[in-house]
Design a binder for these strands. Structure first.
Lengths: 338, 338
DNA sequence: CTGAAAGCGCTAACAG
DNA sequence: CTGTTAGCGCTTTCAG
């Protein structure tokens, strides 16, 4: 590997001079500059980022904390999408991105140590279990962190306006004449509570009594749990004209389960999802859902992280983003006969 | 940040001794060992991986080349899945993973330079454009690389048995009585040619003449292109009882387009996909398709890469993996009346 | 405008 | 069993 010393030798100058031209600092004569650059090219010089990082005491690298077991991590289009936006934003600013997870025997699940060892400049917690002590340590450390859907005690964090979105989705159903609306709640996270509350608020404001038999526990992104919930729903002892699933994937899976029970989605029952993944636009009937603004989430996370790295503060560190209602044929007015 | 010197001072020993205990090398008395460890813990010592990498001349990090624009990168469950398996395998062996892309002004799309600058130990090309000079340079360099679906000139590389899988899928249709089978080919890659040839081989072996009007150009993972192809298909001047789409996503999108034309999938027409994503199992009718073995692809890629890094050779550097036929109700026998 | 020198934190002989 | 020493490749004052 050719180093700045090799270049210096060939240019009859010191390594300091060579270093300066690559960093655009100090006063270097245009002549020397060109010479150094030419020799570097000729020799096939590639800077050693490791060495640079050692002296600069940072890494120009951010970590993305992304679990694979929960919610299937990257397989979930929502997270994959956010990550894509996040990374293109970071890359545009010359940051490297490394994947961090709870695995890796080396650090024994201690993210903070892991991040410190790599001298990461910052971390984006995209899909992880905020209940662990390890994650709290990370948030409370001096290293810049931004989270997605972090609980209220941890900031900064970005999330969709889950309460409002869920309320709007419920109102969409109510406006079409539904009163017997089941809500299949995802796993026990604060965003789930927000969504449940949005659902309840909509009912309340429209004078529809909340029936707890219609609030079922489910699981995000789970084929099995979704199917189970659908079964429970059908046997809950209450007629239902609409069912709100925890996410698009689960909702689409319900198309199948409902069909098996002889119930036509968009006809006999209305179904809604959450997230706004592509597939929801494609299946028949098209899925009525809420689209989370993945672009804004990913980009904002990137901007925040870079700001924090620069030592700036985030003015409003708990951002709640608008999420758009996406209409679809999976919702129709209930049959007159009920 | 506390360093090994801080520990050494407190332990009345040299930094070398401290270094040795952390690396489990040399002969250190159990007593000293414990003392060093205790003090390290007390002081909250975190090793500086950057410094270690500098002297060791490697990074314990591998890159994953993953484009976002083409085939939508991570949004595609196939790639997301492979990446997940790859990374859990690498993590289990204490490697770090960094995302490399064609973006990032810093390296101007020169992956090789990028990888050298970061002193990456190896690279997995998971989803990229193998036609670029930059990628060839990478493969021809001294840095260990393994590709997914790389063209025959580049190795090592892993891919599914596309010819065989496509042939099998075609035979599945033929066995059910189809003779007028359209093939919607994905973008111009060698795997696409393999699949087309598999289709043609199946026809040939069953004495069905190949009709080029039934071979349509499409695009992988494209809603629009898929819809266009479906339209062309319907107007190709030839009756068709089955259509083989380039991937599951496109096939599911076709459900919608076909339905709009009043054609029922699994009744009036049979449809197949490729990949075996979860959604294909969930939609109605269930999609007949080929399941690519993402676990094996990802894990093998990881093992190969680690072998190469250790200086070993890959015996058979162009692995073609079995892919399983997944039956589904999207395929039925053609109507007697045609 | 350029260079000498002192590190960044750690590892790896080699000596003792 | 432990310490000395010489770097890894680069940046950064500080002189000149």
């Amino acid at each position: 590997m050719v180093t700045i010393y090799d270049i210096a030798k060939r240019c009859n100058c010191s390594s300091a001079t060579v270093s300066k031209v690559f960093n655009n600092v100090g006063n270097i004569s245009e002549k020397k500059r060109r010479e150094v650059l030419a020799v570097a090219r000729e020799l096939g010089y590639v800077p050693n980022v490791t060495a640079r990082n050692l002296v600069k005491k940072h890494s120009n690298t951010v970590g993305v904390l992304l679990f694979v077991d929960e919610s299937l991590g990257l397989r979930h289009e929502l997270f994959a999408d956010i990550l894509n936006y996040f990374r293109s934003e970071m890359e545009a600013n010359n940051y490297e991105i490394v994947l961090i997870s709870e695995k890796g025997t080396q650090w024994e699940g201690d993210y903070l140590t892991h991040c410190r060892a790599l001298r990461l400049d910052g971390v984006f917690c995209l899909c992880c279990n905020y209940n662990s002590e390890s994650i709290r340590n990370l948030f409370e450390s001096d290293i810049p962190v931004v989270g997605f859907e972090a609980p209220s005690s941890l900031s900064p964090s970005i999330e969709s306006k889950n309460f409002e979105a869920s309320k709007q989705l419920t109102e969409y159903l109510i406006a079409r004449g539904h009163r017997d609306i089941a809500f299949l709640a995802g796993s026990d996270l604060h965003i789930t509570s927000d969504r449940i509350e949005g659902y309840q608020a909509a009912l309340r404001e429209h004078g529809i009594p909340f029936d707890e038999r219609l609030l079922l526990r489910c699981e995000y992104f789970s084929n099995d749990q979704g199917a189970l919930a659908t079964k429970l729903l059908l046997g809950c002892g209450k007629k239902v004209t609409a069912a709100m699933y925890p996410d698009d994937f689960t909702a689409i899976a319900a198309y199948r389960d409902l069909a098996r029970a002889g119930i036509r989605v968009g006809k006999d029952i209305s179904v809604t999802g959450f997230d706004g993944i592509m597939m929801g636009r494609i299946v028949t009937p098209q899925l009525a859902t809420i689209r989370q603004d993945t672009a804004k989430i990913g980009k904002t996370a990137a901007h925040w992280l870079m700001k924090l790295i620069e030592g700036e503060q985030i003015a409003e560190p708990r951002l709640r983003l608008d999420a758009a209602m996406l209409e679809g044929d999976s919702v129709a007015s209930p049959h007159p006969e009920g």
